[in-house]
């Protein structure tokens, strides 16, 4: 056990309290260090440097106890890599870099691009800039290193692709107006052709009146084809909640369209009702068609 882990830790905290006696802290850090070293045999990072690294990744207002929640072994490897230890680089290469393939597997990149992404990740993670340390030094240790690297790889891959393509996106929201598409219903088609301008204005206006999240939910689901589960994962909520959001947004769109149409069309109550009933019964049929046309 390296002596002075606690001193190094306290020094790096620049006076922030650790909330426990030095001996306890020393023992805690020692335990973390041996766990980490056992996970990466041969990677021999100086104990005090590691303690300093840990201190920097612990928020100033957290007690030393919070160290237990961190992925210490992963932090150890990240720190050793940032310090430029060759064996650490080798371990990273062997055990972490394969995550890049996992991350980008579904992007259907050509093999050459996968290699490019892998090279970019390697370079970014391991090689320090003129002013900045290697990116791995910033790995926070709150989740596993593998997940962190996968997210970074995904970013690099998508960013690369974004730079190389020029998508025309100007018209896409008009597709959402298909949500109130008349389909093949002759009565609705009639109404829609008769009141085309009003319909379009109402829908556009209704979309604009939704909240950003409502619009995003609809687009992510219906334009980008995310499943309810994926939506839930993106927003960190349960699938049932995500489903509710979608329903609520749909309903809001429908109701707003209904309100605006009522204002504009000056239909009698029953006429309007029949139009709207048709629209509501139509809405998800249009959605599935919209969805299908995107998959085909």
């Amino acid at each position: 056990m390296s002596p002075g882990l606690a001193q190094a830790f306290v020094a790096a905290r620049e006076g922030a309290l650790v909330g426990e006696p030095l001996a306890t802290l020393e023992e805690r850090l020692g335990r973390g260090l041996s766990t980490a070293r056992a996970a990466w045999p041969g990677v021999d990072l100086d104990g005090a440097r590691f303690a300093t690294h840990l201190a920097r990744h612990l928020p100033a207002d957290s007690p030393a106890e919070a160290l237990e929640a961190l992925h210490v072994a992963d932090l150890y490897l990240a720190c050793a890599c940032a310090e430029g230890l060759p064996l650490a680089h080798a371990a990273f290469e062997a055990r972490v870099l394969p995550e890049v393939h996992v991350a980008v597997a579904r992007l259907k990149l050509p093999p050459s691009s996968v290699d490019e992404v892998r090279q970019l990740v390697r370079q970014k993670m391991l090689v320090p800039g003129p002013e900045t340390p290697a990116r791995l030094a910033a790995y926070p240790g709150t989740g596993p290193l593998s997940g962190w690297v996968r997210a970074a790889a995904l970013w690099i891959a998508l960013d690369l692709r974004r730079q190389r393509s020029n998508q025309d996106v100007s018209m896409e929201d008009s597709t959402l107006s298909l949500l109130v598409d008349p389909g093949d219903d002759p009565e609705l088609v009639y109404l829609k052709t008769t009141y085309r301008a009003e319909f379009n204005t109402a829908i556009t206006q209704a979309l604009a009146n939704l909240s950003p999240r409502e619009r995003n939910t609809l687009r992510l689901k219906y334009l980008d084809g995310l499943s309810i589960d994926q939506l839930g994962a993106l927003y960190g909520v349960h699938r049932a909640t995500a489903a509710r959001w979608v329903v609520a947004a749909q309903q809001a769109l429908l109701e707003e369209t209904r309100r605006l149409l009522t204002e504009r069309l000056r239909l009698t109550g029953s006429q309007l009702d029949s139009v709207l009933r048709l629209i509501s019964s139509q809405i998800d049929v249009s959605l599935s068609r919209l969805l299908r046309s995107r998959i085909d």
């Binding site: 992963d74 055990r95 596993p144 970013w155 960013d159 998508q167 992510l220 995310l226």
Partner: peptide, 22 residues
Amino acid sequence: RLVAEAVRARTPTGLAEPPALH
């Protein structure tokens, strides 16, 4: 679109986080 693509590309929900490296 980029976010949507990332979500789709990511390991789907329901999959336990792969074991940490250590």
